[in-house]
Design a protein around this nucleic acid. Structure first.
Length: 375
RNA sequence: GUGGAAUUAGCUCAGUUGGUUAGAGCGCCAGUUUGUGGCAUUGGAGGUCGUGGGUUCGAUUCCCAUAUUCCACC
Protein backbone atom coordinates (compact mmCIF):
# COMPACT_ATOMS: atom_id res chain seq x y z
CA UNK A 1 0.00 0.00 0.00
CA UNK A 2 1.48 3.27 -1.11
CA UNK A 3 1.75 6.16 1.25
CA UNK A 4 -0.15 8.79 -0.70
CA UNK A 5 -0.23 12.48 0.21
CA UNK A 6 -4.02 12.44 -0.23
CA UNK A 7 -6.17 9.75 1.35
CA UNK A 8 -9.85 8.96 1.30
CA UNK A 9 -11.59 7.62 4.37
CA UNK A 10 -15.09 6.27 3.98
CA UNK A 11 -17.29 7.20 6.88
CA UNK A 12 -20.73 5.91 6.02
CA UNK A 13 -22.71 4.36 3.20
CA UNK A 14 -26.40 5.28 3.14
CA UNK A 15 -28.44 2.12 3.59
CA UNK A 16 -31.34 3.66 1.71
CA UNK A 17 -29.48 4.80 -1.38
CA UNK A 18 -25.91 3.53 -1.48
CA UNK A 19 -24.55 7.09 -1.47
CA UNK A 20 -21.36 7.48 0.51
CA UNK A 21 -19.96 10.04 2.90
CA UNK A 22 -16.30 10.32 3.69
CA UNK A 23 -13.26 12.47 4.23
CA UNK A 24 -10.55 13.57 1.87
CA UNK A 25 -7.35 14.13 3.80
CA UNK A 26 -4.85 16.38 2.06
CA UNK A 27 -1.66 18.25 2.99
CA UNK A 28 -3.76 21.41 3.20
CA UNK A 29 -6.63 20.12 5.26
CA UNK A 30 -9.41 17.61 5.40
CA UNK A 31 -12.52 17.95 3.27
CA UNK A 32 -15.89 16.33 3.94
CA UNK A 33 -17.36 14.47 0.99
CA UNK A 34 -19.45 14.50 -1.07
CA UNK A 35 -18.19 17.92 -2.02
CA UNK A 36 -18.45 20.54 -4.70
CA UNK A 37 -15.20 22.24 -5.73
CA UNK A 38 -15.34 25.82 -7.04
CA UNK A 39 -13.38 26.42 -10.21
CA UNK A 40 -10.64 29.02 -10.08
CA UNK A 41 -9.24 28.71 -13.56
CA UNK A 42 -6.62 31.43 -13.45
CA UNK A 43 -5.61 31.02 -9.82
CA UNK A 44 -8.76 32.79 -8.65
CA UNK A 45 -12.41 31.93 -8.38
CA UNK A 46 -13.61 34.84 -10.47
CA UNK A 47 -14.42 37.72 -8.19
CA UNK A 48 -14.20 35.79 -4.93
CA UNK A 49 -11.48 36.20 -2.30
CA UNK A 50 -10.01 33.26 -0.37
CA UNK A 51 -11.63 34.60 2.79
CA UNK A 52 -14.99 34.56 1.07
CA UNK A 53 -14.37 31.04 -0.19
CA UNK A 54 -13.75 29.95 3.38
CA UNK A 55 -16.99 31.57 4.49
CA UNK A 56 -18.86 29.91 1.63
CA UNK A 57 -17.57 26.63 2.97
CA UNK A 58 -15.49 25.67 -0.03
CA UNK A 59 -13.14 22.76 0.59
CA UNK A 60 -11.03 22.18 -2.48
CA UNK A 61 -10.47 24.86 -5.11
CA UNK A 62 -9.65 24.01 -8.70
CA UNK A 63 -7.15 25.71 -10.89
CA UNK A 64 -6.00 25.12 -14.39
CA UNK A 65 -2.77 23.94 -15.92
CA UNK A 66 -3.46 25.23 -19.39
CA UNK A 67 -4.32 28.76 -18.32
CA UNK A 68 -1.50 29.14 -15.82
CA UNK A 69 0.97 27.69 -18.30
CA UNK A 70 -0.06 30.24 -20.93
CA UNK A 71 -0.22 33.05 -18.37
CA UNK A 72 1.68 33.90 -16.21
CA UNK A 73 3.72 30.73 -16.79
CA UNK A 74 4.23 27.95 -14.26
CA UNK A 75 7.75 29.11 -13.44
CA UNK A 76 6.39 32.35 -12.01
CA UNK A 77 3.92 30.44 -9.85
CA UNK A 78 6.74 28.18 -8.73
CA UNK A 79 8.93 31.18 -7.92
CA UNK A 80 6.06 32.61 -5.88
CA UNK A 81 6.27 29.53 -3.71
CA UNK A 82 3.57 27.52 -5.47
CA UNK A 83 -0.10 28.01 -6.14
CA UNK A 84 -1.15 28.11 -2.47
CA UNK A 85 1.12 31.03 -1.70
CA UNK A 86 0.61 32.70 -5.05
CA UNK A 87 -3.18 32.91 -4.67
CA UNK A 88 -3.17 32.92 -0.87
CA UNK A 89 -5.52 29.96 -0.59
CA UNK A 90 -4.40 27.73 2.25
CA UNK A 91 -6.93 24.98 1.61
CA UNK A 92 -6.53 22.07 -0.79
CA UNK A 93 -6.05 22.78 -4.49
CA UNK A 94 -6.64 20.53 -7.47
CA UNK A 95 -5.26 21.34 -10.89
CA UNK A 96 -6.79 20.03 -14.06
CA UNK A 97 -4.30 18.72 -16.60
CA UNK A 98 -5.07 21.19 -19.36
CA UNK A 99 -6.35 18.42 -21.57
CA UNK A 100 -9.90 19.63 -21.55
CA UNK A 101 -8.94 23.21 -22.41
CA UNK A 102 -6.74 22.12 -25.26
CA UNK A 103 -9.68 20.22 -26.68
CA UNK A 104 -12.40 22.70 -25.94
CA UNK A 105 -10.97 26.12 -26.63
CA UNK A 106 -8.26 25.73 -29.17
CA UNK A 107 -9.21 26.56 -32.71
CA UNK A 108 -6.74 24.39 -34.46
CA UNK A 109 -5.56 21.32 -32.64
CA UNK A 110 -3.97 18.13 -33.69
CA UNK A 111 -3.93 15.00 -31.55
CA UNK A 112 -1.42 12.24 -31.94
CA UNK A 113 0.21 9.67 -29.73
CA UNK A 114 2.77 12.16 -28.48
CA UNK A 115 0.24 14.73 -27.30
CA UNK A 116 -1.79 17.65 -28.57
CA UNK A 117 -0.52 20.44 -30.79
CA UNK A 118 -2.64 23.55 -30.51
CA UNK A 119 -2.67 27.31 -30.79
CA UNK A 120 -2.89 29.55 -27.76
CA UNK A 121 -6.17 31.39 -27.34
CA UNK A 122 -4.20 34.37 -26.07
CA UNK A 123 -1.74 35.08 -28.84
CA UNK A 124 -2.22 32.31 -31.38
CA UNK A 125 1.24 30.87 -30.74
CA UNK A 126 1.74 27.17 -31.29
CA UNK A 127 2.32 24.78 -28.39
CA UNK A 128 2.47 21.07 -27.71
CA UNK A 129 0.96 19.65 -24.57
CA UNK A 130 2.01 16.14 -23.67
CA UNK A 131 1.51 13.98 -20.59
CA UNK A 132 5.08 14.79 -19.53
CA UNK A 133 4.62 18.52 -20.02
CA UNK A 134 1.30 18.58 -18.17
CA UNK A 135 2.77 16.77 -15.18
CA UNK A 136 5.87 18.96 -15.14
CA UNK A 137 3.69 22.08 -15.10
CA UNK A 138 1.48 20.64 -12.39
CA UNK A 139 4.54 19.71 -10.36
CA UNK A 140 5.66 23.32 -10.59
CA UNK A 141 2.22 24.67 -9.71
CA UNK A 142 2.20 22.49 -6.63
CA UNK A 143 -1.47 21.60 -6.14
CA UNK A 144 -2.43 18.87 -3.64
CA UNK A 145 -4.21 16.89 -6.31
CA UNK A 146 -3.10 16.82 -9.94
CA UNK A 147 -4.92 15.22 -12.83
CA UNK A 148 -3.61 12.94 -15.52
CA UNK A 149 -3.43 14.28 -19.05
CA UNK A 150 -6.30 12.61 -20.89
CA UNK A 151 -8.37 13.04 -23.98
CA UNK A 152 -11.86 14.19 -23.12
CA UNK A 153 -13.65 12.20 -25.80
CA UNK A 154 -16.26 14.40 -27.47
CA UNK A 155 -19.87 13.27 -27.61
CA UNK A 156 -21.19 11.72 -29.67
CA UNK A 157 -18.25 9.50 -30.61
CA UNK A 158 -18.07 6.46 -32.83
CA UNK A 159 -17.35 3.40 -30.76
CA UNK A 160 -14.12 2.72 -32.59
CA UNK A 161 -12.92 6.26 -31.87
CA UNK A 162 -14.02 6.11 -28.25
CA UNK A 163 -12.08 2.88 -27.81
CA UNK A 164 -8.92 4.19 -29.43
CA UNK A 165 -9.25 7.37 -27.40
CA UNK A 166 -9.64 5.66 -24.03
CA UNK A 167 -6.72 3.35 -24.78
CA UNK A 168 -4.55 6.32 -25.59
CA UNK A 169 -5.65 7.95 -22.33
CA UNK A 170 -4.43 4.83 -20.54
CA UNK A 171 -1.06 4.97 -22.30
CA UNK A 172 -0.85 8.67 -21.47
CA UNK A 173 -1.55 7.86 -17.82
CA UNK A 174 1.41 5.50 -17.80
CA UNK A 175 3.61 8.34 -19.04
CA UNK A 176 2.09 10.69 -16.43
CA UNK A 177 2.90 8.25 -13.63
CA UNK A 178 6.44 7.79 -14.93
CA UNK A 179 7.03 11.54 -15.10
CA UNK A 180 5.43 12.51 -11.81
CA UNK A 181 8.30 13.75 -9.67
CA UNK A 182 6.49 14.77 -6.50
CA UNK A 183 4.35 11.76 -5.73
CA UNK A 184 4.99 12.21 -2.03
CA UNK A 185 3.55 15.72 -2.07
CA UNK A 186 0.99 15.67 -4.84
CA UNK A 187 -1.67 13.05 -5.46
CA UNK A 188 -2.06 12.09 -9.11
CA UNK A 189 -5.57 11.02 -10.15
CA UNK A 190 -6.14 8.90 -13.24
CA UNK A 191 -9.12 9.59 -15.51
CA UNK A 192 -11.59 7.06 -16.83
CA UNK A 193 -12.97 7.59 -20.33
CA UNK A 194 -15.04 5.40 -22.67
CA UNK A 195 -17.79 7.76 -23.84
CA UNK A 196 -21.29 6.35 -23.34
CA UNK A 197 -20.43 2.73 -24.11
CA UNK A 198 -20.84 0.47 -21.10
CA UNK A 199 -18.20 -2.04 -22.15
CA UNK A 200 -15.71 0.72 -22.95
CA UNK A 201 -16.31 2.34 -19.58
CA UNK A 202 -15.64 -1.02 -17.93
CA UNK A 203 -12.49 -1.48 -19.98
CA UNK A 204 -11.24 1.99 -19.09
CA UNK A 205 -12.09 1.55 -15.41
CA UNK A 206 -10.09 -1.69 -15.31
CA UNK A 207 -7.12 -0.17 -17.11
CA UNK A 208 -7.02 3.03 -15.09
CA UNK A 209 -7.65 1.53 -11.66
CA UNK A 210 -4.91 -1.00 -12.33
CA UNK A 211 -2.55 1.85 -11.57
CA UNK A 212 -1.94 2.29 -7.87
CA UNK A 213 -3.22 5.84 -7.59
CA UNK A 214 -4.79 7.82 -4.73
CA UNK A 215 -7.96 8.70 -6.62
CA UNK A 216 -9.85 8.52 -9.88
CA UNK A 217 -11.63 10.98 -12.10
CA UNK A 218 -14.49 10.14 -14.39
CA UNK A 219 -14.18 12.22 -17.53
CA UNK A 220 -15.92 12.57 -20.86
CA UNK A 221 -19.37 12.86 -19.32
CA UNK A 222 -21.67 15.83 -19.11
CA UNK A 223 -20.52 16.81 -22.56
CA UNK A 224 -23.93 16.86 -24.21
CA UNK A 225 -25.16 13.31 -23.71
CA UNK A 226 -28.61 12.66 -22.19
CA UNK A 227 -28.72 12.57 -18.39
CA UNK A 228 -29.80 8.92 -18.46
CA UNK A 229 -26.58 8.01 -20.27
CA UNK A 230 -24.49 9.71 -17.61
CA UNK A 231 -26.34 7.91 -14.81
CA UNK A 232 -26.14 4.54 -16.50
CA UNK A 233 -22.38 4.99 -17.01
CA UNK A 234 -21.99 5.73 -13.30
CA UNK A 235 -23.94 2.57 -12.52
CA UNK A 236 -21.68 0.59 -14.85
CA UNK A 237 -18.54 2.04 -13.28
CA UNK A 238 -19.44 1.70 -9.65
CA UNK A 239 -18.47 -1.96 -9.12
CA UNK A 240 -15.12 -1.30 -10.79
CA UNK A 241 -14.08 1.59 -8.57
CA UNK A 242 -12.07 0.91 -5.43
CA UNK A 243 -14.04 1.64 -2.26
CA UNK A 244 -11.09 3.23 -0.51
CA UNK A 245 -10.36 5.84 -3.19
CA UNK A 246 -12.16 9.09 -3.97
CA UNK A 247 -14.23 9.32 -7.13
CA UNK A 248 -14.33 12.61 -8.93
CA UNK A 249 -16.95 13.25 -11.61
CA UNK A 250 -15.36 15.95 -13.70
CA UNK A 251 -17.27 18.97 -14.91
CA UNK A 252 -20.58 18.30 -13.15
CA UNK A 253 -22.69 20.34 -12.71
CA UNK A 254 -26.29 21.16 -11.94
CA UNK A 255 -27.91 20.46 -8.56
CA UNK A 256 -29.81 17.54 -10.04
CA UNK A 257 -26.72 15.97 -11.60
CA UNK A 258 -24.86 16.34 -8.33
CA UNK A 259 -27.53 14.61 -6.27
CA UNK A 260 -28.12 11.80 -8.74
CA UNK A 261 -24.39 11.21 -9.02
CA UNK A 262 -23.83 11.15 -5.26
CA UNK A 263 -26.54 8.51 -5.05
CA UNK A 264 -24.37 6.53 -7.48
CA UNK A 265 -21.28 6.75 -5.33
CA UNK A 266 -19.52 9.92 -6.49
CA UNK A 267 -17.56 11.98 -3.94
CA UNK A 268 -16.25 15.04 -5.74
CA UNK A 269 -17.47 17.47 -8.38
CA UNK A 270 -16.35 20.64 -10.03
CA UNK A 271 -18.20 22.88 -12.41
CA UNK A 272 -18.13 26.41 -13.74
CA UNK A 273 -21.91 26.46 -13.75
CA UNK A 274 -22.59 28.26 -10.45
CA UNK A 275 -20.14 31.06 -11.17
CA UNK A 276 -20.83 31.30 -14.87
CA UNK A 277 -24.61 31.42 -14.64
CA UNK A 278 -24.22 33.77 -11.70
CA UNK A 279 -22.22 36.19 -13.77
CA UNK A 280 -24.95 36.09 -16.38
CA UNK A 281 -27.72 36.71 -13.92
CA UNK A 282 -29.06 33.28 -12.95
CA UNK A 283 -29.26 31.95 -9.42
CA UNK A 284 -29.86 28.57 -7.85
CA UNK A 285 -32.48 28.28 -5.12
CA UNK A 286 -34.30 25.46 -3.38
CA UNK A 287 -37.35 26.64 -5.35
CA UNK A 288 -35.52 26.11 -8.63
CA UNK A 289 -33.31 28.09 -10.91
CA UNK A 290 -34.19 31.74 -11.29
CA UNK A 291 -33.06 34.36 -13.77
CA UNK A 292 -32.60 37.18 -11.33
CA UNK A 293 -32.27 39.78 -14.05
CA UNK A 294 -35.89 39.21 -15.09
CA UNK A 295 -38.39 41.99 -14.55
CA UNK A 296 -40.46 40.01 -12.08
CA UNK A 297 -37.73 40.67 -9.49
CA UNK A 298 -37.53 44.43 -9.99
CA UNK A 299 -39.51 45.15 -6.82
CA UNK A 300 -38.87 41.91 -4.98
CA UNK A 301 -37.09 42.79 -1.77
CA UNK A 302 -36.72 39.25 -0.45
CA UNK A 303 -33.34 37.53 -0.48
CA UNK A 304 -32.49 35.27 -3.42
CA UNK A 305 -33.34 32.23 -1.33
CA UNK A 306 -35.20 32.73 1.91
CA UNK A 307 -33.71 29.51 3.29
CA UNK A 308 -30.13 30.46 2.47
CA UNK A 309 -27.70 31.75 5.05
CA UNK A 310 -25.00 33.02 2.70
CA UNK A 311 -23.52 36.50 2.85
CA UNK A 312 -25.55 37.52 -0.16
CA UNK A 313 -28.89 36.30 1.19
CA UNK A 314 -28.26 37.69 4.68
CA UNK A 315 -27.78 41.19 3.33
CA UNK A 316 -29.17 41.88 -0.14
CA UNK A 317 -32.48 41.72 -1.97
CA UNK A 318 -33.43 40.29 -5.34
CA UNK A 319 -34.32 43.79 -6.49
CA UNK A 320 -30.89 45.11 -5.57
CA UNK A 321 -29.03 42.23 -7.17
CA UNK A 322 -31.17 42.50 -10.31
CA UNK A 323 -30.28 46.16 -10.47
CA UNK A 324 -26.56 45.44 -10.11
CA UNK A 325 -26.61 42.74 -12.78
CA UNK A 326 -28.62 44.87 -15.21
CA UNK A 327 -26.25 47.76 -14.61
CA UNK A 328 -23.21 45.55 -15.22
CA UNK A 329 -21.85 46.20 -11.77
CA UNK A 330 -19.06 43.91 -10.55
CA UNK A 331 -20.59 43.57 -7.13
CA UNK A 332 -23.62 41.92 -8.67
CA UNK A 333 -21.47 39.23 -10.28
CA UNK A 334 -19.76 38.69 -6.96
CA UNK A 335 -23.00 38.34 -5.03
CA UNK A 336 -24.59 35.85 -7.43
CA UNK A 337 -21.33 33.88 -7.54
CA UNK A 338 -21.11 33.78 -3.76
CA UNK A 339 -24.70 32.67 -3.47
CA UNK A 340 -24.52 29.98 -6.15
CA UNK A 341 -21.30 28.53 -4.73
CA UNK A 342 -22.82 28.53 -1.28
CA UNK A 343 -25.93 26.85 -2.61
CA UNK A 344 -24.04 23.87 -4.05
CA UNK A 345 -21.73 23.65 -1.05
CA UNK A 346 -24.72 23.69 1.26
CA UNK A 347 -26.53 21.16 -0.90
CA UNK A 348 -23.62 18.74 -0.54
CA UNK A 349 -23.50 19.38 3.19
CA UNK A 350 -27.19 18.61 3.61
CA UNK A 351 -26.95 15.56 1.39
CA UNK A 352 -24.00 14.33 3.44
CA UNK A 353 -26.07 14.66 6.58
CA UNK A 354 -28.87 12.71 4.94
CA UNK A 355 -26.38 9.97 4.03
CA UNK A 356 -25.38 9.59 7.67
CA UNK A 357 -29.06 9.33 8.54
CA UNK A 358 -29.73 6.75 5.80
CA UNK A 359 -32.29 8.93 4.04
CA UNK A 360 -30.42 10.25 1.02
CA UNK A 361 -33.06 8.94 -1.38
CA UNK A 362 -35.79 10.74 0.57
CA UNK A 363 -33.66 13.85 0.55
CA UNK A 364 -33.33 13.64 -3.23
CA UNK A 365 -37.06 13.10 -3.73
CA UNK A 366 -37.94 16.05 -1.52
CA UNK A 367 -35.33 18.22 -3.22
CA UNK A 368 -36.59 17.51 -6.71
CA UNK A 369 -40.19 18.05 -5.69
CA UNK A 370 -39.37 21.52 -4.46
CA UNK A 371 -36.71 22.38 -7.03
CA UNK A 372 -39.17 21.57 -9.77
CA UNK A 373 -36.85 20.04 -12.34
CA UNK A 374 -34.51 17.12 -12.67
CA UNK A 375 -31.46 19.26 -13.10
C1' G B 1 -37.34 89.37 -38.40
C1' U B 2 -34.25 86.76 -42.52
C1' G B 3 -31.68 82.46 -44.19
C1' G B 4 -30.12 77.39 -43.39
C1' A B 5 -30.34 72.54 -41.11
C1' A B 6 -32.92 68.87 -38.50
C1' U B 7 -37.54 65.99 -37.23
C1' U B 8 -37.53 57.87 -38.91
C1' A B 9 -38.02 52.43 -32.65
C1' G B 10 -37.50 54.25 -25.57
C1' C B 11 -32.32 56.80 -26.95
C1' U B 12 -28.48 58.02 -30.87
C1' C B 13 -28.76 57.62 -35.92
C1' A B 14 -28.63 55.02 -41.09
C1' G B 15 -31.75 54.63 -45.31
C1' U B 16 -35.37 54.91 -49.19
C1' U B 17 -32.52 58.33 -57.03
C1' G B 18 -41.03 57.41 -55.39
C1' G B 19 -42.45 50.69 -55.47
C1' U B 20 -44.08 44.22 -51.37
C1' U B 21 -43.31 42.82 -44.44
C1' A B 22 -38.40 50.67 -43.20
C1' G B 23 -32.78 49.04 -40.72
C1' A B 24 -28.39 49.33 -37.04
C1' G B 25 -26.21 50.14 -32.24
C1' C B 26 -27.66 50.79 -27.37
C1' G B 27 -31.85 50.07 -24.16
C1' C B 28 -36.13 46.87 -23.07
C1' C B 29 -38.34 41.66 -22.74
C1' A B 30 -37.37 36.34 -22.57
C1' G B 31 -34.04 32.08 -23.04
C1' U B 32 -29.14 29.51 -22.86
C1' U B 33 -24.71 28.53 -20.00
C1' U B 34 -21.73 21.61 -17.09
C1' G B 35 -12.83 19.31 -16.04
C1' U B 36 -14.41 28.84 -17.31
C1' G B 37 -11.34 33.07 -22.82
C1' G B 38 -16.01 37.45 -16.50
C1' C B 39 -19.19 41.84 -18.52
C1' A B 40 -20.99 36.12 -23.39
C1' U B 41 -24.60 34.31 -26.53
C1' U B 42 -29.57 33.19 -28.88
C1' G B 43 -34.28 34.85 -29.82
C1' G B 44 -38.31 38.54 -29.28
C1' A B 45 -41.28 42.99 -28.77
C1' G B 46 -41.29 47.95 -30.41
C1' G B 47 -42.04 52.77 -35.73
C1' U B 48 -49.48 54.95 -39.51
C1' C B 49 -40.88 57.79 -40.98
C1' G B 50 -43.25 65.60 -36.63
C1' U B 51 -48.49 67.39 -38.19
C1' G B 52 -52.07 68.85 -42.18
C1' G B 53 -52.84 69.18 -47.28
C1' G B 54 -51.28 68.37 -52.52
C1' U B 55 -49.00 65.69 -56.88
C1' U B 56 -49.00 60.35 -58.23
C1' C B 57 -51.45 53.95 -59.94
C1' G B 58 -48.47 54.34 -55.42
C1' A B 59 -45.48 59.24 -50.76
C1' U B 60 -41.48 57.93 -45.18
C1' U B 61 -39.10 59.84 -49.96
C1' C B 62 -41.38 65.12 -54.38
C1' C B 63 -44.29 70.01 -53.59
C1' C B 64 -46.96 73.56 -50.23
C1' A B 65 -48.28 74.98 -45.42
C1' U B 66 -47.46 74.38 -40.32
C1' A B 67 -45.15 72.96 -35.44
C1' U B 68 -40.80 72.12 -32.64
C1' U B 69 -35.44 72.24 -32.04
C1' C B 70 -30.60 73.95 -33.39
C1' C B 71 -27.20 77.26 -36.11
C1' A B 72 -25.93 81.75 -38.65
C1' C B 73 -27.16 86.71 -39.82
C1' C B 74 -29.94 91.17 -38.67
Amino acid sequence: MSDFPVRYEAEHVCTQSGARAGRLITPHGTVATPCFMPVGTQATVKGISPEELHEIGAGVVLSNTYHLWMRPGEKIVKAAGGLHQFMRWNGPILTDSGGFQVFSLSERKHINEEGVTFKSHIDGSKHVLTPEKSIQIQNDLGADIIMAFDECTPWPAEKSYAKASLERTTRWLERCVKTHAREREQALFGIIQGSTYADLREQSAKEITAFDLPGFGIGGLSVGEPAEDLYSMLDVLRPHLPENKPRYLMGVGTPGYLIESVLRGIDMFDCVLPTRIGRNGSVLTYEGRKIIRDKQFAEDFRPIDEDCGCYCCRNYSRAYIRHLIKAGEMFGLRLTSIHNLHFLTDLMKNLRQAIFENRAQDFATAFFQRFGSKN
